[in-house]
Write a protein that binds this DNA or RNA. Structure first.
Lengths: 246, 246
DNA sequence: GATTGATGAAATGTCAGACATTTAATAAGC
DNA sequence: GCTTATTAAATGTCTGACATTTCATCAATC
């Protein structure tokens, strides 16, 4: 893989890092491949070696690359990636063509964890949390079925899930919510087609809201599971086969 | 807080980063405090500005610091820390005097998540996973009650928990297992005092092993919950009050 | 002929200094 | 008193040189 296939960049080491990271996340390089050397990258994008080094340092910190003095820079396998690094999360935002294997893994995680999280939220949610959850849900209702408001609808949907993670009032789960944001966004983007599907999805979200309002742990878990089943159907994933290859 | 109270450092930007990170993690600075400037740090530790900048870049990436041109470097609040960043995990390894609030938050997370993880492991564990789990358990048994082998006992204990996360065969949970390693280590260190406690802990671990061997999801969840209850008792944590302050 | 050692090229890592940019405080001017 | 220059101080950036690590090549020696 060469640099020529990549889009131009708009200046700034962060932009360069994002650009290269996205190329890696979408599989433009294979694990074990040698990555272009600093000077070549700098020349190709017309940036200083400093910028390149800063960008590569970020990618290296995220486990996407392995750099060793004298040898060069190598691309690491997906199992080495630091999926929970906030940088990754940022780079993944808006990426619609993520590696399918990665999408499945993240969905599988949510499918196992989110019911539990909803249950914790039902226990720990404050009045503020519930108000935020209601706002998000009303936003989803208001924008449902309006093609011109699709973007807003997705925003509300993602916010709904995020609030649930926040409502656990646990530092670790909260981080998790932030990190999953882009993945959830990507999943939501892929699902939700016709009106019928959308209504069903909306109803299932409503059940989660009601359960959390009532503080009913078991109901919240069950309702969250139903929301994710809906997502799975939309994505064409069979829930029985969620674990990664052995 | 000044730099004078910190230990000397052994060269290398990574060591410097770890040193400063640990000072932050153990509360040597308060949120909002201004952090020493690059040149002062460099002078104090006799390292180049480059090293300092690299170290500070890491701390900044982990959410410990916020750097803004012209103003300086500020210390961020714990809620802003990227707890799931692998760097954090590395910096926390071996730290015995973590902030109590942080210890509680991490334990609360494990208390909620680990039963689920054990259940997933019971579903997905391969023969290799089970073999590793048995090895770890046997190691725990072999070194139990021998004060001179305490370090090894802890290693086996941590390995036991790690294997469970690995056995889910899910990329995200696996990462989680790696990240929690140092925290688990710290928790295990604090617990396990007398023989009686240790025997009880060992028995509870054994139940988890048996359930996973049998592929019994519900039993694995219940057994993992019992292991964590034991830990909670040792730590003096009341499981009912696990959610963070509202 | 195989092993060892010396040499050199090529990559990343480090340093030092100058300069740019941002921010905030201070002084000047109306 | 308010606005606007000026200045100081911090982080950010660039550049060129040098250091270090790694690997390949080739030669020397046994």
């Amino acid at each position: 893989m060469t640099l020529d296939a990549l889009p131009a960049h708009q200046g700034g080491a962060e932009n360069l890092a994002r650009l290269l990271a996205r190329a890696l996340l979408t599989g433009h390089w294979q694990p074990g491949d040698v990555f272009p050397k600093e000077l070549d990258i700098g020349q190709h994008f017309s940036v200083s070696r400093n910028q390149v080094r800063n960008a590569l340092a970020s990618l290296s910190a995220a486990g996407l690359l392995e750099r060793t003095a004298g040898r060069g820079t190598q691309v690491r396998a997906m199992s080495e990636w630091h999926l929970l690094d906030p940088l990754m999360s940022e780079w993944m935002t808006g990426l619609m063509n993520l590696d399918p294997q990665l999408v499945r893994a993240i969905y599988a995680f949510r499918f196992s964890a989110e019911p539990l999280v909803a249950g914790l939220a039902a226990q720990a949610a404050s009045a503020d949390d519930i108000a935020r959850l209601e706002t998000a849900f009303e936003g989803m209702q208001r924008t449902a079925g309006q093609p011109e408001a699709r973007h807003q609808h997705i925003e509300h949907d993602v916010a709904f899930h995020d609030v649930i993670y926040q409502a656990t009032h646990n530092l670790v789960w909260r981080q998790m919510g932030h990190l999953l944001r882009p993945s959830i966004m990507a999943l939501v983007h892929r699902s939700q087609h016709d009106i019928k599907t959308l209504d069903d999805s909306l109803a299932r979200h409503g059940h989660v809201l009601k359960a959390i309002q009532a503080g009913d742990v078991a109901a919240a878990e069950a309702a969250a599971r139903e929301v994710l089943r809906r997502t799975a159907i939309d994505l064409g994933i069979v829930p029985d086969t969620l674990s990664d290859g052995r």
